[in-house]
Design a protein around this nucleic acid. Structure first.
Length: 212
DNA sequence: GTGCGGATGAACT
DNA sequence: GTTCATCCGCACT
């Protein structure tokens, strides 16, 4: 190995205190998992920000610390994986400093490495956007499981999940901000444009309420 | 200990 | 457009 252009994101990236900004910066970054000897990765194309201090949609609002949410209060650079609707494992990245409950939900990736493994995990035969579009789908494709991958480090040398910067930058005009979905209970916070995705990317999820 | 509902996806009509 | 699978976390008792 002569050069390492696939550099892992460092802890200092995750400990930034602007979770909405981080959610946008994460677009174009590479999410990689190395699970059961299978390396799979994809470029992040869709994210959502959540904040425990004032965001009613966040599990940890208002600074609510429970067995489930306590990991969100940790220093940035760890995972938060939880089960939704009893079926779907949703993968979040914890950000900010210790004591603040901020997280970015990864909602869509564009597959890069280990596509065969992903197809197998999803029990699909064809390579279609269904493979990884949507938070539940991409977690399954990458082999992310709540039992094994909740509250693990994304920055340690031997971690099985990490993020890479492959020098892909997304121009601001290609980032679409829209309302988050599935959080109608969050009242006025449901209107916040904290969902970000890459314009014209077919690997973004097909969730309802896509306000263009 | 018990009951209820959810940051979804897939398969329907 | 609608329905439903399916189980943990949380708020009670």
């Amino acid at each position: 190995m002569v050069k390492n252009k696939h550099s892992r994101l460092k802890k200092s990236f995750y400990t930034q205190t602007d979770v909405v900004g981080i959610a946008q910066e994460l677009l174009g970054k590479i999410l990689v998992t190395h699970i059961n000897g299978e390396l799979t990765s994809g470029m992040i194309v869709e994210t959502e920000a959540y904040r425990g201090s004032d965001d009613k949609a966040c599990h940890a609002y208002p600074y609510k610390k429970t067995d489930r949410t306590k990991i969100m209060f940790a220093e940035g650079g760890v995972s938060y994986v939880y089960l939704c609707y009893g079926i779907h494992h949703l993968f979040n990245i914890i950000t900010s400093v210790e004591g603040e409950a901020e997280a970015v939900l990864i909602r869509g990736i564009e597959p890069i490495d280990g596509i065969d493994s992903m197809l197998e995990r999803r029990n699909l035969k064809e390579f279609t956007p269904r493979l990884t579009a949507g938070p539940g789908s991409l977690s399954q494709a990458l082999g992310i499981n709540r039992k094994w991958h909740n509250a693990i480090s994304l920055v340690e040398e031997n971690s099985v999940i990490w993020l890479e910067d492959r020098n892909i930058s997304i121009p601001k005009e290609n980032i679409i901000a829209s309302r988050r979905v599935g959080i109608d209970f969050a009242e006025e916070c449901a209107l916040w444009n904290w969902r970000f995705r890459i314009k014209n990317n077919k690997w973004t999820s097909k969730g309802k309420g896509l306000g263009e």
